[in-house]
Design a protein around this nucleic acid. Structure first.
Lengths: 373, 373
DNA sequence: CTGAAAGCGCTAACAA
DNA sequence: TTGTTAGCGCTTTCAG
């Protein structure tokens, strides 16, 4: 009596060929008669053949796929979270024979072209990157995709390029959410302002546009009194905000579309208008906490980098391992953080150590006393 | 020259024992000398031994772990999403030899005790369930845990029980978020109301409590004019809301803490106070969409069931497969849904088919034309 | 063009 | 108490 078989073995039994032949058919490898190939494929389809990934990973006994990761180290909190999402998920899929090559760059847009090229040269099958400088990266990304290296952008898109997918919070949408919220928080006819990093930056500009388009729809007769650029400089941002508040005493709200909200908070407090001027911030890090508590920050639009990292890795791994198609984009909704839910965000837990050693990192802390076996 | 080995083989080489012995030591199986056991464990620790899960899954060639899932089918949208999160993640971990037994129950709290007991009897290693009736389930859950069957609650907790973990949006917190938002949306001194299903239900009561505690903190002199119960009945909810609006013409906001927000929307429109009365809803489903667009619903507090399902499965699988400890609770932040980000939520995509066949279900639609190979 | 066989790391059944 | 061995499903290499 024949043993109960499955997988390749089953197919080979049915087709009356050897497993080697089945394998050749399944993988489109050469050296096989076209007719037997089709016959085998048909059988596979009929019995709904699905490869056993565990067996495959085991058999290969080496990386089945290599994924390069090119993400900034700085700014701390945000990219720390992005990295931790990436590494956490990388840990999981590594079980399936996926290898990761981490090429952190110092800052967004700094040295990413070089890192990207190095990754391409090192024979990766896919690259996950934050496209800080889309124009410069476009030709490289296109080249990679032409060579069959799949590219997934995370957090920052290179929309013009041929990247396979992107996982991000669309900046325009982010601005819309801020605009709608602020529009609902202030009374009709209010004047509000936008504090950007630099409007030159695509990202900041689109956030500002989304905000400007949406705010008036939710605040009858509301208007945007000013859009100022802080150039990510603490003093400049503080001064400009201070001036703005003096110049426009009736100002009812501010939207800060960059990570740099602390100087704005300080300017608001210096002007004694905490709570009176509703502040919508962007991103989330521990130092913001007191300003939430004092009511200086009404809400923050948070892009959930940890989740983005997770998803990006999953997309890439699923495609490389199981040929799962890429969605062209994975647009995430930002989280709306307010005082009530603030403490739930891992970013607020200061005691969590930030990774210092690259590229390896202990991911799970088994000594965590708050868990139970 | 010795071959480059790894894993159990390496340990056996170093310890000068057979792989069988190593296996016995590693698994705490009996029939092994205590001293050699400790010696092997020490070596394993030193070389940082980590089992190859692929090999393990392959070797076992049968379910290494069995997870039972006991979640309602109804109410449609919410539990559909919870199921899809569970099934999606189940698909992934099934590669590691985890088997799932799905025992959908018709409604929350209906027949869950029976389903739970059946699952226990069927030899599962863990159960994921929505504890609709914590009091009734507590002894069962405790019994399961005593027998070594791990229980993870999802969406609805049985906090008194000895369940290993819970993945949920804390109802009190959910109410707080609603309270803070509404407090910020209405002007100082406003009167608002809460529409609950039935305050008897722990879940609804805690949401109402969270709301009541938080709203006044964010709305100076604000007060909660009424708390009404709709008992999940459309007509009753509509009528009571209608009456409320007539009785309290100055009402500035309503918080609906149950899924049943449509009759409230209709009552608001019947009273011609759309936009004037700010409505904070709970949950999310396609029929709410027009009310967002018309401005009748200002925001909704959404518990993200899909994500909850994913996380619950991961927790359970990680523990069963890799002995990763359970966090005692996984409190998630609800998503704040407003018009701007509404379209990003999968719940809004009506065209997605809802699962009709249980317990199996096709998870990925490879014919999706919006994806690229 | 096709078949046969080895081996990935682990578990379990059987021998010693 | 310990060692040996077969085999999970797949890939790959070498023979035919």
């Amino acid at each position: 009596m024949a043993k109960r078989r499955s997988g390749v073995h089953l197919i080979s039994d049915i087709a009356q060929v050897s497993r080697g032949t089945v394998d050749r058919a399944l993988h489109g490898r050469g050296g096989i008669n076209e007719r037997t190939r089709l016959r085998i494929l048909e059988i596979a389809r009929q019995i709904g053949y699905k490869p056993n990934l565990a067996a495959r990973a085991l058999s290969a006994n080496k990386a089945t796929a290599k994924i390069g990761v090119c993400i900034p180290r700085e700014i701390h909190f945000f990219y720390d979270q992005l990295w931790s999402g990436v590494l956490e998920e990388a840990e999981r899929v590594s079980q399936f024979g996926v290898e990761f090559i981490n090429r952190p760059i110092q800052n967004l847009g700094k040295g990413d072209a070089k890192a990207f090229q190095e990754l391409m040269a090192s024979g990766v099958d896919g690259i996950i990157l934050t496209a800080g400088n889309p124009k410069k990266l476009k030709p490289l990304i296109d080249k990679a995709e032409t060579e069959g290296i799949r590219v997934v952008c995370v957090d920052t898109d290179a929309s013009e390029s041929r990247r396979s997918s992107v996982v991000y919070v669309e900046p325009y949408l982010s601005g819309c959410v801020a605009g709608e919220l602020l529009g609902k928080l202030v009374s009709p006819g209010s004047k509000v302002a936008v504090v950007a990093g630099m409007l030159m930056a695509e990202d900041h500009r689109r956030k500002a546009e989304g905000f400007s388009a949406t705010f008036p729809k939710h605040c009858l007769g509301g208007q945007i009194a000013a859009v100022i650029e802080g150039h990510e400089d603490e003093d400049e941002t503080f001064q400009k905000t201070r001036d703005l508040l003096r110049r426009t005493p009736e100002l009812a709200g501010i939207y800060v579309n960059t990570v740099n909200c602390l100087p704005v908070c300080r300017a608001i407090e210096a002007g004694n208008v905490e709570g009176k001027v509703k502040l919508i911030a962007t991103d989330l890090f521990a130092e913001m906490s007191p300003y939430f508590k004092k009511g200086t920050i009404a809400a923050s639009i948070y892009h959930q980098p940890h989740r983005q990292g997770q998803i990006a890795v999953r997309l890439m791994a699923d495609n490389l391992i199981s040929k799962v198609n890429f969605p062209p984009t994975v647009p995430l909704s930002p989280a709306v953080v307010i005082l009530s839910n603030l403490y739930l965000f891992r970013e607020m837990r200061l005691n969590e150590s930030t990774p210092t050693d690259w590229p390896d990192k202990a991911l799970l802390d088994p000594s965590d006393t708050k868990t139970r076996a």
